[in-house]
Design a protein around this nucleic acid. Sequence first.
DNA 1: CTCTGATGTCATAGG
DNA 2: TACCTATGACATCAG
Length: 749
Amino acid sequence: MLSLKKYLTEGLLQFTILLSLIGVRVDVDTYLTSQLPPLREIILGPSSAYTQTQFHNLRNTLDGYGIHPKSIDLDNYFTARRLLSQVRALDRFQVPTTEVNAWLVHRDPEGSVSGSQPSSGLTLESSSGLQDVTGPDNGVRESETEQGFSEDLEDLGAVAPPVSGDLTKEDIDLIDILWRQDIDLGAGREIFDYSHRQKEQDVDKDLCDGAEQDDTWSGEGAEALARNLLVDGETGESFPAQFPADISSITEAVPSESEPPGLQNHLLSPLLTGTESPFDLEQQWQDLMSIMEMQAMEVNTSASEILYSAPPGDPLSTNYSLAPNTPINQNVSLHQASLGGCSQDFSLFSPEVESLPVAGGSTLLPLVPSNSTSLNSTFGSTNLAGLFFPAQLNGSANDTAGPELPDPLGGLLDEAMLDEISLMDLAIEEGFNPVQASQLEEEFDSDSGLSLDSSHSPSSLSSSEGSSSSSSSSSSSSSSSSSSSSASSSASSSFSEEGAVGYSSDSETLDLEEAEGAVGYQPEYSKFCRMSYQDPAQLSCLPYLEHVGHNHTYNMAPSALDSAELPAPGTLKKGSKEKQADFLDKQMSRDEHRARAMKIPFTNDKIINLPVEEFNELLSKYQLSEAQLSLIRDIRRRGKNKMAAQNCRKRKLDTILNLERDVEDLQRDKARLLREKVEFLRSLRQMKQKVQSLYQEVFGRLRDENGRPYSPSQYALQYAGDGSVLLIPRTLADQQARRQERKPKDRRK
DNA sequence: CTCTGATGTCATAGG
DNA sequence: TACCTATGACATCAG
């Protein structure tokens, strides 16, 4: 298992690096942390979704009224986890920029960063989103809250670049909605990240110490919690070490759009500081990618043109100026070749090639990359015409060279990569249809093709997808989608806000609070608490609360008992007192009635909740009849079982909700993978076009000893294992191509 | 009246 | 073994 894990992890990393080198962007992190349970669990360990934990032990506590000796404050734990997940989701590659800025704004009141920071105009969106989450916060932000969006816009518009200057109210609302949705996504996605789990547990310790703040989960409570997290983050006590670095890097990178010369340093910071752990490295790689992404998005208004169809000009240079500075500067030429777009310009391939006398030379050697050894070790000698020139894939490609031309770049993709792609194909195959693909492709054509999960088009697409899925699911049950929470004020909405983090009622209420601004949820929550979390200590103080939800006293004749216990009538307030007693009586459970009838000298709560030793001590203190003892034991058994049943049902419900959320996440992942596939196919096709044109050009310049051009039907170019390019007879090339095709098939058997 | 959801209770398995 | 917990099945009640 370990080796498999290592293999997969390393393989994915290598694959990512490889793809990034050839210009295809992949967000490995989403693969690792998103909802792909098998892969995720292989790499990160088993998920906690169905791990049996003694949750009831951990949760039999009414918030704020002491913690059961056996329990940790699980709710706080999950809340902290959720908050951390959100926080961590902020600097995600695929997370909209609004989230990034949300974090920045949140830091403002404490670090007073905003004053000195040339924050981008997007900050205003985040401030709005943040306020939605945290509700009324400290005074500084609260005033801004009341000012509203337009004021924020005006305020920040002064320093804001034109990117966001033309944001309308609708835009902000949309961003806000997306932001909220991404909170859910982020939380759901992050919980399985092992490194996070560890870090969050650290935070959890702190939070458990301050658990007494939970007596009401109002806005202040959640905000206090959030502040706790932030304070931790600032002091560095329990936060991931990389986190401040990430933030700083991002905050530096954002304004860097106006000052490109400083960009590279900013961009490099995440990588250069990353010496902690593989996860940090990976995270920082993500950071780099995201920053590159942001820069590309913001600098180039037509960002979609950059990757695949931009002319080899300034956009390219700005885009690739990073490459030599990144730790992985293996082959800039390759990078450029793949990213260069559809241009037929020969210079796309590499500076080396560019500088070489291609025009006059009849030799093929210039085609050999200067640092080809690294490539050769990976790619070997291949002739993957089938990959780059499958007739069905590049239908729109100009097939002037025809299928008879071998693929000179075939060797650039090794079999492992092919396997990965095939795996993805397999994973996507189900439900993937060409119409969908073409639609997606159209979308990318019209919209940004820059990134799979960039802040613009993918988010909008995924949001629409997510909303559709959530709305469909909300019709089937009390959905966990945030959309239902805003409209619902029933007790089920508390459940509906169940996070993907497990059995956390606090996370639910926090969610609800995030979505609704803590308006009108309190009664439902208290009801929820009463129903599900009967704290023994609390109940002994307020025994009438024990069965406030339902009173199943149907097996008894309460009137028979009442007569013995009711206060003597005759006072002025007799009527009301009787009513009160009646009410209290109705609140009593069957067993309480029985206990009264049997004159049990202590409360049912003690009977039920005392540890065995104390319980036995208690029994020994009194002279009890056999019937009384039997009843007491029954009460204890039933009481414990009642709580167990409540926990069981809650757990069941949570499981269902988690499954529902998982389904939604998987649907999102599926959509994302489909988008990625389309994108891969597009880039592949464009690469093929480029390679084809290059091939034609090179082949067309070749002359035999008589100065005549070679016939494409008789000769073909092929990469050899040592990086050289050979001109070989067509028959030989075909044979080798067949061999190459057979190999993967054999291996798969 | 039935239906349905919530709750309590019992029996049982398993830690 | 005693105790505790989890859970399926069933009963009951309220809406």
